[in-house]
């Protein structure tokens, strides 16, 4: 039996297929774009083609993400908070604090040893510190989003961006460029600002993180600079990141699909 998880986020639409042993058979990450129904179909086709599996072989489908209700063929919709927790439990089981920075929002979850969510905090009021925010900053810095992660290498100043509103932060970055501030210093300042925001979210679910394993999922976990800044702000030696952080939500959804059948 095959199980499918689909995570329809604001930036990307991710799909993961797993088998009876919860092995990942295929995964796909594509841009959601303006028409999410088409993206859902495309992501599903991608994983089916890659795994060489027919749609009829799928035993159960769970959708997640902000567009979870839009997946017509779903057996159930589950929030991304529960799905990310389930997904990270599968790949980094010792995780107790999970930070998920997605395209449009950021969330922090506190997990028990069984991977159940026991508390969470979420910021979806503005794009501060999210994927969209980083996209805007990359644009202001005139670099590709993929280059942003290493851009802060060698930065030495303690610059912190004072504005976290995407619009104001973008103009602050432009002003800093105009003043001749080096790109790497601005990038470091950006990362520190995101880290401060994230740290505040972490404190809402766990005042003290001593001895708790912290992991990060979501597309922004690929940005080494942000991950490092967050670990520095939390006085952690390391934050664990899965190999494929952007499919953790979809993976969790697929595992829930599996568990709904197998109990």
């Amino acid at each position: 039996m095959i199980f499918l998880g689909i995570d329809i986020g604001s930036l990307s639409c991710d799909a993961v297929l797993i088998d009876e042993e919860k092995n990942i058979l295929a995964s796909s990450v594509i841009l959601t774009g303006a028409k999410n129904i088409e993206s859902i179909a495309r992501a599903k086709k991608n994983v089916l083609d890659a795994a060489g599996i027919m749609e009829k072989d799928i035993r159960s489908i769970i959708s997640t993400g902000y567009g979870r209700a839009r997946v017509k063929e779903k057996d159930a919709a589950v929030t991304e908070i529960t799905c990310h927790a389930k997904g990270i439990k599968h790949v980094i089981p010792e995780t107790r604090i999970l930070i998920d920075i997605g395209g449009q929002d950021s969330k922090v979850m506190r997990l028990d040893p069984d991977g159940n969510v026991v508390d969470f905090a979420m910021n979806d009021k503005c794009a501060a510190g999210t994927g969209r925010f980083l996209e805007a900053m990359a644009r202001a810095l005139e670099v590709d989003i993929t280059e942003l992660g290493d851009l802060d290498k060698g930065a030495t100043s303690d610059l912190v961006l004072s504005s976290m509103c995407t619009v104001f932060a973008e103009s602050e970055v432009i002003s800093l460029i105009a003043c001749g501030t080096e790109q790497k210093e601005i990038a470091k300042g950006l990362n520190r600002s995101i880290a401060a925001r994230t740290n505040s979210l972490v404190k809402r679910v766990a005042k003290n993180i001593d001895g708790l394993t912290v992991s990060m999922s979501g597309g922004v976990a690929r940005n080494k600079g942000v991950v490092k800044a967050i670990s520095e702000s939390m006085n952690l030696e390391k934050i664990n990141t899965p190999e494929t952080p952007d499919i953790i939500g979809a993976l969790g959804a697929a595992i829930i699909a599996f568990e709904k059948i197998h109990g």
């Binding site: 929030t79 908070i81 979420m122």
Partner: peptide
């Protein structure tokens, strides 16, 4: 806007 939070809370 609160749907995800409330659903996640009930799932929890």
């Amino acid at each position: 806007q609160q749907q995800t939070r409330i659903e996640a809370f009930t799932e929890m």
